[in-house]
Computed example of a mutant assay.
Amino acid sequence: MSFLGLRKWPTPFLKPMWPFMTAAAIVTYGVAQIQAKAIRSPEYANDPRNPYAAQLAKEAHH
Score class of each variant (00 low, 15 high):
49 R>E: 15
4 L>M: 07
61 H>S: 15
20 F>N: 03
42 P>W: 12
1 M>T: 00
50 N>A: 13
10 P>W: 03
34 I>R: 03
46 N>D: 09
18 W>F: 14
19 P>G: 07
27 V>F: 09
57 A>G: 07
45 A>H: 05
45 A>Q: 11
3 F>K: 06
39 I>P: 00
43 E>H: 05
33 Q>R: 11
51 P>Y: 05
58 K>C: 00
44 Y>I: 01
55 Q>H: 08
40 R>P: 07
32 A>H: 10
9 W>V: 13
15 K>T: 14
54 A>K: 14
57 A>M: 10
6 L>E: 02
55 Q>T: 10
7 R>Q: 05
40 R>L: 09
59 E>T: 12
54 A>W: 07
3 F>N: 12
22 T>G: 14
15 K>S: 13
4 L>T: 00
3 F>T: 14
37 K>F: 09
55 Q>D: 12
21 M>T: 09
15 K>F: 14
33 Q>F: 07
55 Q>E: 14
46 N>C: 00
30 G>M: 06
35 Q>K: 08
56 L>P: 00
53 A>F: 07
62 H>P: 14
57 A>N: 12
19 P>W: 09
34 I>C: 02
9 W>T: 13
9 W>L: 09
37 K>I: 06
14 L>A: 11
18 W>R: 02
4 L>Q: 02
23 A>N: 02
11 T>R: 10
4 L>S: 01
23 A>Q: 05
43 E>V: 10
34 I>D: 04
16 P>M: 03
10 P>S: 07
34 I>M: 10
39 I>C: 01
39 I>G: 00
16 P>K: 01
43 E>N: 03
33 Q>T: 08
1 M>H: 00
46 N>F: 00
40 R>H: 11
8 K>I: 00
55 Q>P: 00
37 K>L: 14
59 E>H: 11
45 A>F: 07
61 H>E: 15
47 D>S: 06
54 A>M: 11
50 N>V: 13
29 Y>V: 14
9 W>S: 11
53 A>T: 11
19 P>L: 07
13 F>E: 03
19 P>K: 01
41 S>A: 15
59 E>G: 08
58 K>S: 05
34 I>V: 12
15 K>P: 08
24 A>D: 04
23 A>E: 04
15 K>C: 07
16 P>A: 02
28 T>N: 01
15 K>I: 13
10 P>C: 06
32 A>C: 12
8 K>F: 04
22 T>K: 04
57 A>C: 03
